[in-house]
Design a protein around this nucleic acid. Structure first.
Lengths: 110, 110
DNA sequence: TGGAGCTATTTAGTAATCCTATATACTAGT
DNA sequence: ACTAGTATATAGGATTACTAAATAGCTCCA
């Protein structure tokens, strides 16, 4: 799927929160998981801006650990504020997506 | 629902295309329809920037008509390119929303 | 006649988010 | 050494929605 960039705005951060909520993970791995999900064009830089934002907003706890595969990894876990933010994200998603699907499926009188 | 601004990015234009596709309409009416849909905080300015963009990208035909309720209205209809764009929008929406719902409902092993 | 309120369009400036492109660095294999 | 894969970081750009204000036509009523 091409050019879904604009549609990802506002949901990508939520996706990252969800991925982190499933267990300690780090930026590079998050990127790979988003690509596996189907968002194949998401690159590291994008994910790092998001994780930096999560750090800045105190939604995650951080632990740096060495890796045998390369440089050290920065592992993230959601803290209480992050969990709350994730809940709010899904509420917003349910609201917005239901409204849009309503618009999509509404019978066209024409 | 509060603060869904960022989540609307990339989908609001598609919603406007869909509304226009149902029959000739104008900016102010489109705004009202979006508010009725549930996007209560959408204001005229936002919709006008979208309709201006649709004009610029040659996705709509325009006809100005007088109104008994106020100043003249600028009525929009989708042209062939607009119809095509609308189709593409729904394809993207189906793709993105299905992937996000997949992420949401995936069993959490943890 | 003058003001309020609803209808209606437009635009300048701002904020937020994701992407592009690049730099840096560790490890392993050839 | 060199390449490739792993891994983090950041500066600058593009797009999009919001804020706020200006302009204007119409109806109603004091």
């Amino acid at each position: 799927m091409e050019n879904i960039t604009e549609m990802l705005k506002g949901v990508l951060e939520g996706c990252v929160l969800e991925i982190i909520s499933r267990g300690e993970t780090y930026g590079y791995e998050i990127t790979q998981q988003l690509r596996e999900l189907g968002f194949t064009d998401v690159v590291e830089g994008t994910v790092y801006t998001i994780t930096m934002r999560l750090e800045k907003n105190n939604l995650v706890d951080i632990e740096k650990k060495p890796s045998t595969m390369g440089p050290p990894r920065k592992f993230y876990t959601l803290n209480a504020a992050g969990q709350k933010q994730l809940e709010i994200f899904w509420e917003k998603w349910d609201f917005v997506s239901s409204k849009i699907n309503e618009l999509k499926t509404k019978i066209k009188v024409k």
